[in-house]
Design a protein around this nucleic acid. Structure first.
Lengths: 194, 194
DNA sequence: GACATCATGTAATCCGTTACATGATTTT
DNA sequence: AAAATCATGTAACGGATTACATGATGTC
């Protein structure tokens, strides 16, 4: 369970309520992880049982603090090797079975997806520029921390660019198939290249 | 639920048993989707209730056939726009909170991930070459189908390449931070660029 | 006083994994 | 006869989403 580690990371430097943690997750973390409050609250309870966090409950708020056990758990996890995530990509499923559609329909679905990725590039790029502009006001220690966090944004932008350009290439390939069929049926075309 | 659509896609051209469907999913589909038998069997049952498939049960096997309703559902889904998947990326979580580790540790975790991605590039590239070599034996209609399927492999290779090179860049950035600190504390470094 | 925000939860449901259980058919 | 493969399931659990329910505090 990795939400646990997200919450430990958020709590590492300062205590927070479940509600506040949700807001952190909805910030820059949302680019690669998300969680609902209805998932966060039970998770915090479980983490308390595992002594990863303690809870200072006031009248109104329940403020969670990370424990030494929690710090240890997070650091150990951060150092551990990362299995490549088994990804489920509904869009790839669509492409894989896309030959059931006519060429124009395949192209449309691919182009539509490309447009979505391009919108994200713009969004992430803006966030990165904002982040870079904030570097100058930070202390040397904060700078390192912040620069490392910005690397995740770069990854997001590059990933979106990769997908946007794949969509362009794939749409072009499909268009070429249409053209090949129009000319002469026997065409096999050039091999698909990486 | 997209497993439903995967199964509909597999059943579109020919009937199959649950077991056989599992083997199809474990083939080239496994690069972007996976499912266990224990998930496939109940899903088929549900799909039968929804009239997406019918079941010809022999003594031994239960052979599932797609219905017209099923074909309609699949085609409609294939044509529908694709929301960008909200991704959960544990590796990005590690990088985001990576500043809690020493530079060498961050580099090691990133390099390790890069190595895994490079292994996948090799694996997928081999599969793509095999696929390309099979094109020549196919009928014109099969060629189009197969070429479109190969596009998913290209996407996989490009995606892995993107991640491998991000890992290189990120490790280099972290090394630069180490160097910057060794020279003079006040360094903020160049902005992070996409 | 009304509205937004802060705050905490429960219940139902879904999708997916792991472990367990069973047995028929085919190959060696 | 033993082993591999084909074949079908159930049970328990984990992680996540959606809908529902409640109420306190701060702001206009």
């Amino acid at each position: 369970m990795s939400l646990k580690h997200v919450l430990l990371g958020c709590l590492y430097k300062k205590p927070a309520t479940g509600f506040r943690l949700k807001q952190m997750v909805d910030g820059s973390i949302s680019h690669f992880w998300s969680a609902e409050l209805s998932q966060i609250y039970p998770t915090l309870k479980k983490m308390q049982q595992e002594s990863l966090v303690t809870c200072n409950a006031g009248t109104r708020d329940k403020v969670y603090h990370i424990t030494d056990t929690g710090r240890g758990e997070l650091l150990q996890w951060l150092r551990s090797p990362t299995e490549l995530a088994q990804q489920r990509d509904a869009f790839m499923v669509k492409v894989y079975f896309g030959s059931l559609l006519r060429d124009e329909e395949v192209s449309r679905v691919i182009d539509d997806c490309g447009r979505r990725h391009r919108a994200r590039i713009a969004e992430y790029t803006e966030a990165l520029e904002l982040g870079n502009s904030m570097l100058k006001d930070l202390s040397p220690h904060e700078v390192r921390d912040f620069r490392i966090k910005l690397l995740t944004l770069r990854a997001g932008i590059e990933s979106e660019k990769h997908w946007a350009s794949w969509c362009d290439e794939a749409a072009a390939e499909v268009a070429q198939m249409t053209a090949a069929v129009a000319k002469g049926k026997g065409e096999k075309g050039a091999p698909i290249r990486a």
